[in-house]
Structures are given as C-alpha cells and as structure tokens.
C-alpha cells in the first residue's frame, strides 16, 4: 500500500477532494493519503508518493519563472 502525502495551499473543496482521490486510485490502486495545508504554495497541489514529487503549486511555477528569468 502506497503512502501518499498531498499538500495544498488551502483546504480542498469536496469536489476537488473527489477528483484527487480518483486520480490517486487510478494511479496507485491501494493507498493511504495524508492531507497537508501550506499557504506558501499560493495555489495548486503537491503530491508525494514516497519516491516521486508531483509539484503543481503556483510557487513552483513562479520559482521556475525566476530561474528562467
């Protein structure tokens, strides 16, 4: 069973939570998920499955802009 950590900038709406759970089920099958709230992300979502990080946060997009400047 895969342990998933999901971090968002603000608590997920119910509709968003359903979509996230559907995504995780399709991708990992059996899993456990822990939700975290970090307002420094500004928006979007970050998923960590123990091996790989899926970073869709606004902060990472702005950091990429800064780097590619």
């Amino acid at each position: 069973m895969t342990n998933i950590h999901v971090t968002v900038a603000r608590p997920l709406l119910d509709t968003d939570r359903v979509k996230v759970e559907a995504f995780l089920a399709k991708k990992y099958g059996e899993y456990t998920v822990v939700y975290h709230v970090d307002d420094s992300l500004l928006g979007g979502i970050v998923i960590f499955d123990g091996e790989k990080v899926y970073d869709g946060s606004l902060k990472s997009k702005l950091d990429a802009l800064k780097t590619n400047g």
Binding site: L12, V20, K27, G43, I45
Partner: peptide, 18 residues
C-alpha cells in the same frame, strides 16, 4: 477557490488524472 480548483484540475489532468 474557483481558480485554485481549476489549477488542481489541470495538474491532475496533466499527470494522467481525469
């Protein structure tokens, strides 16, 4: 909230979600 939801939705789609 709407923009944030849209953003999350787009990410999940890009990563292979529905």
């Amino acid at each position: 909230e709407e923009d944030n939801s849209k953003l999350i939705q787009d990410c999940l789609s890009a990563w292979g979600g529905e």
